[in-house]
């Protein structure tokens, strides 16, 4: 009898320990799934390297991003090639500035545009979509018709119009990107909210006497986080693409600031003189950066999207 109860106790203990080991929180589960995805992990490493480059590169070169190397100014096409002897690791740009420092600066600005644009979209889109989805009925109808209308406007042209009228500055670019970037997000969030609002925990919150605002902010939005993170991670490259597009046309980021798009534009303009490095270095960073963002987004979707579980 005694032995038996000991055995049972041990079994129970084992079982408890096993259970403890097995129980994962939602986020731990997602993390595990994400780190299993090789492409996503490699992309994360590449992206970390790019970020590190953007902020550390200025300490490794003797040239700043504004200084002009007068020694090669007249002959950039011949003497501006990438060379360690002159200290221009990536060569020089058409004005004789050090491309290494310029690319670092452009990377900083492009990443900033991507993250700030996505951040605005997340805040506005989540609130807008959650409100429309939760209230439903006429409010939802009007709010979503507004989104429909805004979506059918050719936004790139309106964005350029905005930049022309109010002057071309980074601030205006953010306002313009912010105005358009939240639309998709709001639709996705609205759809998800409409599913969530009929769940028991919302019913419980209503029964508990929470106000509508509290329910949206405390109960609905935390449950939307997964899907919001997935789409935000895809918004970052989309914002970078939009910014690069506008900067390529010379309408976005203005000198002395620069971005991936502006650098690609500069390099693309001089390609026929044979100064390929002016195009290829910024292009490599652009392509590597966007690839990483897309794969990380993919990995996050596999890890967090409830549909695929």
């Amino acid at each position: 009898m005694v032995i038996r109860s000991k055995k049972i106790a041990q079994m129970a203990e084992n079982l408890a320990a096993h259970e403890m080991g097995k129980s994962h929180s939602l986020w731990a589960d997602a993390r595990r799934r994400f780190f299993k995805n090789k492409a996503a992990v490699i992309s994360l490493i590449v992206l970390t390297l790019i970020v590190a480059f953007a902020f550390l590169a200025p300490y490794f070169t003797k040239w700043s991003n504004e200084e002009i190397d007068w020694a090669i100014l007249g002959s950039v096409a011949e003497d501006g090639k990438p060379s360690f002897a002159r200290g221009h690791f990536f060569g020089a740009d058409p004005l004789g500035r050090d491309l290494f420092a310029r690319v670092a600066q452009g990377t900083q600005i492009s990443l900033m545009v991507g993250f700030v644009g996505a951040f605005i979209a997340v805040i506005v889109g989540t609130l807008y979509g959650a409100i429309a989805g939760y209230f439903g009925g006429r409010i939802d109808n009007i709010m979503m018709r507004i989104v429909d209308i805004l979506m059918s406007i050719p936004y790139m042209f309106v964005l350029i119009l905005l930049l022309v009228v109010f002057g071309r500055s980074i601030f205006m670019l953010f306002v313009g990107l912010g105005l358009i970037s939240w639309l998709d997000m709001s639709r996705i969030v609205r759809g998800q909210t409409m599913v969530l609002k009929n769940k028991e925990f919302v019913e419980a919150a209503i029964a508990g006497g929470s106000t509508k605002f509290t329910i949206i902010v405390r109960h609905i939005i935390p449950n939307l986080l997964g899907i919001v993170i997935v789409y935000a991670s895809l918004l970052v490259p989309a914002m970078i693409l939009t910014e690069s597009f506008i900067s390529f046309l010379g309408l976005g980021v203005q000198e002395p600031n620069t971005s991936w798009g502006a650098l690609i534009s500069e390099g693309a303009g001089t390609v026929l003189y044979g100064t390929l490095w002016q195009l290829l270095f910024p292009l490599a960073f652009f392509v590597a950066g966007l690839f990483s963002f897309f794969f990380i987004g993919d990995g996050l979707r596999d890890a967090l999207d409830p549909k695929d579980r």
Binding site: I264, V271, L272, F291
Partner: peptide, 19 residues
């Protein structure tokens, strides 16, 4: 091609077919 939008394709094409 996701990371090859038109403003990246255009200069690459010029390098290959013109230069």
């Amino acid at each position: 091609a996701q990371v090859l939008p038109n403003f990246v394709m255009a200069p690459i094409l010029v390098i290959i077919f013109t230069l």
